[in-house]
Design a binder for these strands. Structure first.
Lengths: 166, 166
DNA sequence: TCAAGATTGATGCAGCTGCATTTATTGGGC
DNA sequence: GCCCAATAAATGCAGCTGCATCAATCTTGA
């Protein structure tokens, strides 16, 4: 190959793209496998339980949950169905809008969320934290944010008790 | 919150984890949407066609393809089935091992791969390249590689004519 | 007031994924 | 040669996802 052949996208950018695809898969697979081996449900359940547990009185409208989690409407609908089936949440009537409903996390749901966070945080530490200094993590955030353009909300909740994914 | 409270994983690491999950989804969704709008099949098809087109005589054993693409056996089996159904590849008998077979890319398959690379590379440039300098792309690669530990093979092929994902 | 349109949530269907199993063939040890 | 574990590939089944659509209810505007 000749000298200084310009390509669009550059080989550097293409390599970054490939890494972004592959590494995420590997790390996520590893984390999900850890949770699975510990007998926990999928990460999406955790995210939903976390959102619900953070809501003022432990209850939210499905449409609200949908916006927080950035997943489609039907996906929310079915996720809630599963949580309710497992006794992790209950549906409540919405008196001011009879089309809608409220979903409230149960005590069992709160407990599961806390237990999952133990395993989940350990997995994050094992597969990410142990391989990256805090300074590098900040650099990685900065670079990734440039691609996504505003991932702001992600900041707020982390401090407390859990990290949402997706 | 008090001074210098240590958490494991640190908030920096957790934030990086969240970014890695979210940004990858956004960028991938954007790229796949571009391809879909242009009427192309899923990216996995591209990856398979690329691997096949790179093989010495345009043919590979399914088990080989499986190792290259890092996807499970049954997934490879079905992907090949779809490519064959669409006339993008053909099955060839394997005389030295009657359990196995060869899969050969067709002319139509080669053409599709090239056309997809036009759209695909444009999408990568649009959603990644335009937001990151080459130097930043290199930094991002470096940080991501620390998480994945060896993504070596990714390097080799990029120069030519396409980038595999996943 | 009431019809038209928007919003909320559920669901039937097709396609894809993972898991486990099945079928066919190979190769190695006895 | 023969048996048995290992390998190659396919497939039935359950669960999940996206798409389109549905029913119920709310809101708006003439």
């Amino acid at each position: 190959m000749g000298v200084a052949m310009k390509r669009r996208p550059s080989s550097e950018v293409t390599a970054a793209w490939i890494r972004l695809m592959r590494i995420r898969s590997r790390v996520l697979d590893a984390v999900e496998l850890d949770l699975k081996k510990a007998g926990f449900p999928p990460l999406a359940w955790y995210d939903a339980l976390l959102e619900l547990s953070r809501a003022p009185s432990g209850e939210m409208r499905p449409v609200e949950l949908e916006k927080q989690m950035l997943i489609p409407q039907y996906s929310t609908s079915r996720l809630i169905e599963r949580l309710v089936d497992e006794g992790l949440a209950v549906r409540r009537e919405c008196k001011i809008d009879k089309r809608g409903q409220f979903v409230e996390i149960t005590e069992a749901g709160r407990e599961l969320q806390k237990k999952m966070w133990s395993a989940y945080s350990a997995a994050i530490e094992k597969h990410v934290g142990s391989k990256l200094s805090d300074a590098d993590a900040v650099r990685l955030c900065g670079l990734l944010d440039r691609l996504g353009c505003s991932c702001d909300e992600a900041e707020a909740g982390v401090a407390r008790d859990g990290a949402p994914a997706r």
